[in-house]
Design a binder for these strands. Structure first.
Length: 494
RNA sequence: UCCCCUGUAGCUCAGCUGGUAGAGCAAUUGGCUGUUAACCAAUGGGCCGCUGGUUCGAGUCCAGCCGGGGGAGCCA
């Protein structure tokens, strides 16, 4: 069977100007973000989307249509010559053309006499594909609280703010991959199910196929996980770091980028039970190298999304956080400060102001301390290194002073810690010794210790919480508003 | 997990020392010379979170429960 000329339904953007047709060779179907660049005034085009608002006068009405391809809607003008139809063939298609309805509009692009937009679509026809009854459609053409929108998480992508957040999240994710791919890193898909139950990092979600009402038990009454799917306890991963170290110690440059899970009962604007994390890991790389990587990473990703997402970023700057773009530009342009933990404590102790928690060597930096350091004492991003070993994870490389480890936190104004990382302990004996000090089950980490037995190498890495990064880049104040469907204690509705 | 705040119209909120329910926006209808947070007018809209208590009388006071938000801790 011979096929006619095949036109791709979803051509890549670079080819779109000449090939963006779907089954209608004479009709240019465009996404709204491409209208200005790919259609000229006088040309007939078709667009699809959802009605944001409608303003009607006696003879003309104006319909704002948004298709999510960009922040701005396209103004579609209906006059007495416009044919208004509905998919259901309703006699009253005009009344169905209201906020929330999905529509197809076909017409001629023209310069707009109104001040707010360059071009508009004078509609020859507009078709209501799916109506949205106004008496029950929750999104109105007015501002809604984020709190309310969380209750309709399936509809909030249709709002300006959440659309912008979603596009920014996508752009950041893409730029994260670009940053590492351009530097020859391998993306490692570390497992989501793990048998390692410690790492100190909080509570884990258990993964099991046992019947919770009637699990097999040992004679002493404890649950017999030998009967479970993995024949031992299993959990959702809280980090991919230990796994990705195996690949850094073979491919030299590796990173993870995926979901991770913590069963902590924390209810704050900065915590989720399911979130995304980026974890680069590099062999032949010490702490300074690691800090360099973190700084370059933040600068490149932020710098590029400031360019590619300018319209959305200007929206955040105007509506979410005044001065956001200026703050981010400074992050991109100024070098990060680097200080040791000991120096940070000195700065805090000489701050000449009280803190709720008194800063002293040996105790962890509190949120208020981090904010003071980066916002007031230094005034730009700062990398704090060499923390006391007691407050950091077992795998961090021990300094010769016997009291600190080669850890680093990157603190940024307005948020505090955005990146945490370290040089890893590459000496097997010291690592195992530290694990025994901490009372860990060394046997279950035998494979991890092997990385230090065979061809061990200095290596370093860090972790970045994607959602916290998006919060920082957008100015959004609640982590639940930068992820599609947030999972928090007591919340898995969507 | 702890501390604080809060549940009143579709949304955001007001409602005083207890006296029987209000505003703005949204919606509906009509009007209007191309609007853009459109405008003008009219109309409809309420188990005042739930349960119990005090009282002649509870949106208001008390107790318990449920939901939401913020802060702290933990951390990313």
């Amino acid at each position: 069977m011979r096929r006619a000329v095949v036109r791709p339904a979803f051509p890549p953007l670079t080819a779109c100007a000449t090939a963006c047709y779907i089954s209608r060779p004479t009709m240019k179907e465009l996404r709204i973000r491409n209208v200005a660049g790919e259609a000229s005034v006088g040309e007939e085009i078709e667009i699809k989307g959802w009605v944001r608002t409608r303003r009607a006068t006696k003879n003309v009405s104006f319909v704002e249509i948004n298709d999510g391809s960009r922040l701005s809607s396209l103004q579609v003008v209906l006059d007495e010559n416009t044919e208004i139809r509905s998919a259901g063939g309703s006699e009253d298609a005009d009344s169905l053309l209201q906020t929330g309805a999905s529509v197809r509009a076909r017409g001629v692009l023209q310069e707009s006499p109104g001040g707010k937009q360059e071009v508009e679509l004078l509609a020859k026809s507009i078709r209501v594909v799916g109506p949205a009854p106004a008496d029950s459609y929750p999104l109105q053409k007015k501002r809604h609280s984020f709190e309310f929108l969380r209750d309709i998480a399936h509809l909030r992508p249709r709002t300006n703010t959440f659309g912008a957040v979603t596009r920014l999240r996508n752009a950041i994710s893409s730029q994260i991959h670009s940053f590492f791919q351009e530097r020859d890193f391998c993306w490692i898909h570390t497992p989501i199910i793990t048998g390692i139950d410690a790492e100190g990092a909080g509570n884990l979600f258990r993964v099991t196929t046992l019947d919770p009402a009637n699990p097999p038990r040992h004679e002493d009454g404890t649950v017999d996980y030998g009967e479970d799917f993995f024949e031992r306890p299993a959990y959702l991963a809280v980090t991919g770091q230990l796994n990705v170290e195996a690949f850094a110690c073979s491919l030299e440059r590796a990173y993870t980028f995926g979901p991770t899970f913590r069963a902590e009962n924390s209810n704050t604007t900065r915590h989720l039970a399911e979130f995304w994390m980026v974890e680069p890991e590099v062999a032949f790389c010490d702490l300074e190298c690691n800090a360099d990587l973190a700084e370059e990473f933040l600068k490149q990703v932020i710098g590029r999304v400031l360019e590619s997402q300018l319209e959305d970023m200007e929206f955040f700057d105007l509506r979410i956080q005044k001065g956001l773009i200026e703050t981010l530009r400074e992050v991109v342009e100024k070098p990060f400060e680097r200080i040791t933990y000991a120096r940070a404590i000195e700065l805090l102790q000489s701050a000449g102001r009280p803190f709720e928690y008194t800063p002293e060597f040996g105790s962890d930096l509190q949120s208020e301390h981090e904010r003071y350091l980066t916002e007031e004492a230094i005034g730009r991003p700062v990398v704090v290194t060499d923390y006391p070993k007691e407050i950091k994870a077992f795998y961090m490389k021990q300094n010769d002073d016997e009291r600190t480890v080669r850890a680093m936190d990157v603190l940024v104004p307005g948020l505090g810690e955005v990146i945490g990382g370290s040089e890893r302990e590459d000496d097997r004996e010291r690592l195992e010794g530290r694990m025994r000090e901490l009372g860990m089950d060394v046997e279950s980490y035998r494979w991890y210790l092997d990385l230090r037995r065979f061809g061990s190498v200095p290596h370093s890495g860090f972790g970045l919480g994607l959602e916290r990064f998006i919060m920082y880049a957008s100015g959004m104040q609640n982590i639940r508003d930068v992820i599609a469907f947030p999972r928090t204690p007591g919340n898995v509705k969507f």
